[in-house]
């Protein structure tokens, strides 16, 4: 089954053709990162404008690169949410138009389930599965007791981890997006500054705003004397401690066979290293880290999960809405 998937939830206009949920026939991503870097973040109206500029050419390229005729596509998958409303609209209308014109099913997808199922490109998923979703918009522990069944065990009470990285990078005078810069600086840093541990009511929830304020205070106290590498190190270790400790707790509280990492922050080199700690208490745990190409937003991951969703009977009518606050299936 060949699925044409469209993803426009934030700042990438992306289209991919995926066969049977695991074979990528094409994967085109047109990133707006340079435009938004100039503004220091994603401006929703700018993102929508760029999506309408890109949508037709990215679609055309994806079909061409897959060496297919569009008539050979069996279904159209689309990110319905969460995301920026104006950006979601462009992809959603495109998918609906194609579904109507070519008389093929429409499969609406939750963006995060795409990140989770991106791991299908490298491993067979086994259940119960625990996903640690870490990105600029999300920090969540999601349990899949069985295939395509999502249960949120914990989520961030304030900033997403990627957002915290970006904000800390900004106060440190690093360019947007800040995550990779902090990751790079931290490699040369050492244990020097102390940052507080955060507390949340639900032990599986996350919080990063206290950490961000503590970094700000450190900078104000130390002024020019601050050692950026050490600060990056301290922040990164504190932020990653927060998510690794909670992941360990989630694994101890639930029967988990397979752990997967998902989302943009899964590209962080230190995080990729630290998930191996999970093996210490759980030697039989299967661990999968998504390939780098598929950590950032793309449509191949939407095509991957759409195949599974399709088997579970997920279909969308022509009247479905873009939903910025969409809940899991």
């Amino acid at each position: 089954m060949k699925i044409c998937a469209i993803e426009t939830s934030c700042d990438e206009t992306a289209v991919a053709i995926v066969e049977d949920g695991h074979t990528v026939l094409s994967n085109i991503v047109s990133s707006q990162i340079n435009t938004h870097a100039a503004f220091g973040g994603v401006i929703p109206e700018v993102a929508s404008r760029i999506h309408i500029e890109n949508i037709s050419i990215v679609l055309e390229e994806a079909i061409k690169a897959a060496n297919l005729k569009i008539e050979e596509i069996d279904a159209f998958a689309i990110t319905q949410g969460p995301g920026l409303i104006g950006s979601l609209h462009v992809g959603l209308i495109a998918a609906k138009t194609l579904s109507w014109y070519y008389d093929k099913p429409l499969i609406p997808i939750h963006h995060i389930t795409g990140h989770i199922y991106a791991n299908q490109f490298v491993d067979k998923l086994e259940y119960p599965l625990l996903a640690l979703v870490v990105s600029g918009g999300h920090t969540e522990l999601v349990l899949l007791k069985e295939e395509y069944h999502f249960e949120i065990l914990g989520s961030t009470q304030d900033d997403a981890i990627g957002e915290a990285y970006d904000k800390v990078a900004r106060v440190m005078g690093l360019p947007y997006p800040g995550g990779p810069h902090i990751d790079r600086l931290a490699k040369d840093g050492k244990k020097n500054y102390r940052l507080p541990k955060v507390k949340t009511q639900n032990p599986l929830d996350f919080s990063f705003s206290g950490l961000k304020s503590a970094v700000l205070q450190l900078i104000q106290k130390n002024k020019e004397e601050i050692i950026k590498e050490d600060l990056a190190f301290a922040f990164q270790e504190a932020a990653l401690n927060e998510i690794i400790e909670k992941t360990k707790l989630a694994i101890s509280l639930n029967k988990v066979k397979h752990f997967v990492l998902a989302g943009g922050v899964a590209a962080n080199s230190r995080l990729r290293e630290r998930v191996n700690e999970l093996k210490i208490d759980n030697p039989d745990l299967k661990i999968t880290i998504p390939p780098m190409w598929c950590c950032t937003d793309n449509a191949a991951m939407i095509g991957a999960v759409a195949y599974v969703a399709y088997q579970h009977g997920v279909r969308g009518d022509l009247d479905i809405s873009a939903n910025p606050g969409l809940d899991y299936a």
Binding site: G86, A94, T97
Partner: peptide
């Protein structure tokens, strides 16, 4: 309306390019 314009135009661009 910016949003409105993009809705009709997406339909036209997709059909213009692919069909």
């Amino acid at each position: 309306s910016y949003t409105g314009l993009r809705i009709g135009m997406t339909v036209a661009k997709v059909l213009g390019a692919l069909a």
